[in-house]
Amino acid sequence: MSQTVIHRFTRTVPRWRPRVTPVKLDEATPAQLDALQVTPSNTRVSDYVLVLAHDVETLKVRSPLFNAIMYGRDGLSRAERELGAIAASIVNRCIYCAAVHADRHAQLTGDTGVTDAIFLNGEKADLAPRDRAIFDFAVKLSQTPPAAGPADLQALRDAGLDEGEIIDLILSNALFGWANRLMHVLGDPVRQEAS
């Protein structure tokens, strides 16, 4: 079996192969085990999280922050938060993040059309008006420096988003500016292929 690095966007989630050596569970410090939430009944930890365990203080706050931003009650729908995450992952070309969150978006909406369109045409994808406003804003906020401006904000308001929903979009998109820079920098998305 050989491993091929994936370069095209896909909803089929690849395996993530680290470019640095993950922390070994049997060598982990008490602080690392605590941040990893390893218990005798839960010893399954992904390579990604074991890589992040090299910076244990950041890992400790990252998971609860991630969950609060992506799964918090009220505000923007879960599918629309995923769209904010996908937009960042397209701009930053994080194949792994885009796959995970496109798959989740398709499951939440029962529809693969939106992510098919985004994977086909990227930032120029043909989307319905509310998705269009959300995706455009998030694509622009993902630039360096961030390029979202008053007209992009007005488009969100015209599409019916309120203050809380707009904050949730900013948060989910910004969070993937973070996640993409870990996933895409510290590892490769790969598939097993019979050689």
């Binding site: 640095v20 890589v51 992040l52 090299h54 910076d55 950041t58 906020l141 993902s142 360096t144 420096p145 961030p146 979202a148 401006g149 008053p150 904000l153 203050e163 707009i166 904050i167 900013i170 948060l171 998109n173 910004a174 969070l175 500016g177 973070w178 996640a179 993409n180 820079r181 870990l182 920098v185 510290l186």
Partner: peptide, 26 residues
């Protein structure tokens, strides 16, 4: 471990800068 620390610092700043820019716009 130090490469991961650099990536986390960079990644957090990407988040923080976009959060700040977005809130100021709002």
């Amino acid at each position: 471990a130090d490469i991961v620390r650099l990536a986390e610092l960079n990644a957090f700043m990407a988040y923080h800068c976009r959060l700040i820019a977005g809130l100021r716009l709002l």
